[in-house]
Design a protein around this nucleic acid. Structure first.
Lengths: 190, 190
DNA sequence: AAGCGCATGTAAAAGGTTACATGATTAC
DNA sequence: GTAATCATGTAACCTTTTACATGCGCTT
């Protein structure tokens, strides 16, 4: 399950509690989904058991107790292995974005490869949708026509973004126009 | 589970076997996913049990036996009920597209409402992503920056498409530029 | 006769959600 | 004192995938 690794990746940015993680994923639920506590807490327990993270009970005055999870060395290695896992023909936007979000831990060439892979996948989907649309040539019922158009529009937007970003990446002096980006910045938790 | 109703909806276009359905969804796996046989066949059995569909064993010469599923009157009613179900704050593109694909069975005003609902949802997500991006103002680490941009680009494309389509819908004489659309056209199965 | 594409199906396992249970603290 | 927010956790349930099992008919 990839959520497990994504959560592990989030811990590289900041030690967090289950509640923190939930809050920080809530904002992105649309893009990558947000797990329920019923799966999040067990996932954290599993990270502990596998030695990929450690806990520390924190007692801030005037606040309920929290359990801060921190990634371990072993966790970092395991995460690295997941991030650099080969091909994986996964068409899901979700998985792509989960890895993209952890880009800080990615080498520059790996990032480019990640984006290129996505571009190739989307391009293939785009072509197959176009072919489907061509096959029906004015036929095809309303719903399918609409759904195909929708899919084509989204795919086109993805391809444009990917191509533009890859181009920026290939100009090393530009650094993606992200000169101001702080390497240690974190997701807003609440 | 919405897949069940979607499968039922596909049967309104054509009587199909489980294998047919799988093939015809494979093309759209990118957009709405394709269930495995392990869930598809049981789903079809369930439709039978509930009287929403009937089977007929077909033996074409020189071919293995197939089970053709056909939607019943009761199935049509049940499907109608599902399609017209109220709000449902579902942000998933998948569910939206599943219903959109069955648009033929939707009344014109219902279709517009369906699109408007999606537009409102996407607009809300867009706003919240923009707000998040604003909060970080040049901060935020590379990955989050990229993921947010990606999400914004996709949302923008969706909004453009939805607005354009809604506009076309509001010009009744245009009929969505789909004058040639055949009401009885079907999805290509293989 | 071996292998492949068609075609259907089941059982075990994995993964997730829902609903529930608990408890501290703050605001009204 | 009671509702709301913070915070963690468990168990029952539902769904889905994975892996397996089966069999026809065509081609080599």
């Amino acid at each position: 399950m990839s959520f497990r690794y994504f959560v592990l990746g989030l811990l590289t940015q900041q030690s967090m509690s289950g509640y923190d993680i939930k809050n920080c994923l809530e904002n992105l639920a649309w893009l990558i989904g947000s797990p329920s506590f019923g799966s999040l807490y067990p996932a954290l327990h599993a990270l502990l058991e596998d030695g990929l993270a450690t806990v520390e009970v924190v007692r801030d005055e005037g606040k309920p107790m929290r359990k801060l999870y921190t990634i371990t060395e072993v966790g970092l290695e395991e995460l690295g292995r997941w991030l650099e896992q080969p091909p994986e023909p996964d068409t899901s936007l979700k998985t792509f974005l989960m890895r993209l979000m952890l880009a800080r831990r990615l080498s520059h060439p790996w990032l480019a490869e990640h984006l290129e892979r996505r571009r190739d996948q989307v391009a293939a989907e785009y072509a197959s949708l176009e072919e489907m649309a061509g096959m029906q040539e004015g036929a095809g019922c309303l719903g399918q026509h609409l759904a195909q158009n929708y899919g084509l529009a989204v795919a086109r937007a993805e391809l444009d973004w990917l191509n533009a970003t890859l181009e920026q990446l290939s100009e090393p002096e530009q650094q993606l126009s992200l000169g101001k980006v702080q390497e240690d910045a974190t997701l807003p938790i609440r």
